[in-house]
Design a protein around this nucleic acid. Structure first.
Ligand SMILES: [Mn+2]
Ligand SMILES: [Mn+2]
Ligand SMILES: [Zn+2]
Ligand SMILES: [Zn+2]
Lengths: 146, 146
DNA sequence: GCCTAATTGAAAACGAATTTCAACTTAGAC
DNA sequence: GTCTAAGTTGAAATTCGTTTTCAATTAGGC
């Protein structure tokens, strides 16, 4: 399974941090990896509830934050007021196209844009730590209806 | 005064929308234009309170939203959990470099990046409505201390 | 001035995120 | 296996920025 590496990374993280491996944490990671990208805490919580009603919202919240600390997940904000999480592609990076109409999210990566960002920051004597590029669009499907 | 155009635009907006010109709205616009960019509702409210304690937070909040509707201000989010507003440069656009350490914000515009964004969206058959590009950096001052 | 509709500000409500805390679970020591 | 200390859990409470409510006030056409 391609996810075993991620699971191992989380286990290691728990160990080195003096944290404990619990059934909830395993279930939440399992479902997080199964669910696909860009889900809110609520999204994940509801998915988990269906299979196991004995999981609390607070635990899902806390565990997602652990994922982010550990580096296996990243938190995103697309302007709808709630945080979303997605699994990290290790050292891969991508930005997002977000449809204003239907909410569809498409990922992209453009090395030319990445280069120019570094250049721009450099011109100011700044070093980029991270960046966020969100393109808010009408997707091809939603453009038609207009 | 360079701001008289903006004030006129807001007056016109109020008229066409059937809204009223009030003392509070004038004071808030005055201070908003004086204060400079990227202030939160709270920021502006506190500035106004010093000069005129008879202004409510709710009114500042509502008036900033009017500014945005009118097109004389834009709302921004830099990830610290509160909305910020800045005066619109008419049809000019810019993005932001934000120092993670001291919070300093520098504006920039790079037409090459803008072009590439349009190209990327086009490749997916999408049309860009708006975008957000935030570069989180250590500014030249804060890089030194590290 | 008069009247109506819009505006105001204090307080309440909202919603997502976060914290509290008593009960429970884990993992290492014995 | 049993004990124990430390970490974890989930329901409920709290926080914090934003937004709404509502009774009192104000603007502006007549
Ligand atoms: Mn993504
Ligand atoms: Mn700006
Ligand atoms: Zn769409
Ligand atoms: Zn700095």
């Amino acid at each position: 399974m391609v996810n075993s590496k991620t699971k191992g990374k989380f286990k290691d993280f728990l160990l080195t941090q003096g944290l404990k491996s619990t059934n909830q944490r395993e279930l939440i990671l399992e479902e997080f990896l199964r669910a696909g990208a860009h889900l809110s805490t609520e999204d994940l919580y509801l998915r988990l509830r269906k299979k196991n009603p004995r999981i609390g919202y607070a635990t899902v919240h806390r565990t997602l934050k652990l994922f982010a600390q550990c580096g296996i997940a990243e938190q995103r904000h697309f302007g709808d007021g709630q945080a979303r999480y997605e699994a990290s592609d290790h050292d891969e990076h991508h930005d997002h196209l977000i449809c204003i109409s239907c909410g569809k999210i498409v990922e992209f990566e453009d090395s030319r844009i990445e280069e120019l960002q570094i250049e721009v920051a450099g011109e100011h004597g700044f070093s980029i730590e991270r960046h966020r590029l969100d393109l808010y669009v009408y997707c091809s499907h939603c453009s038609i209806q207009t």
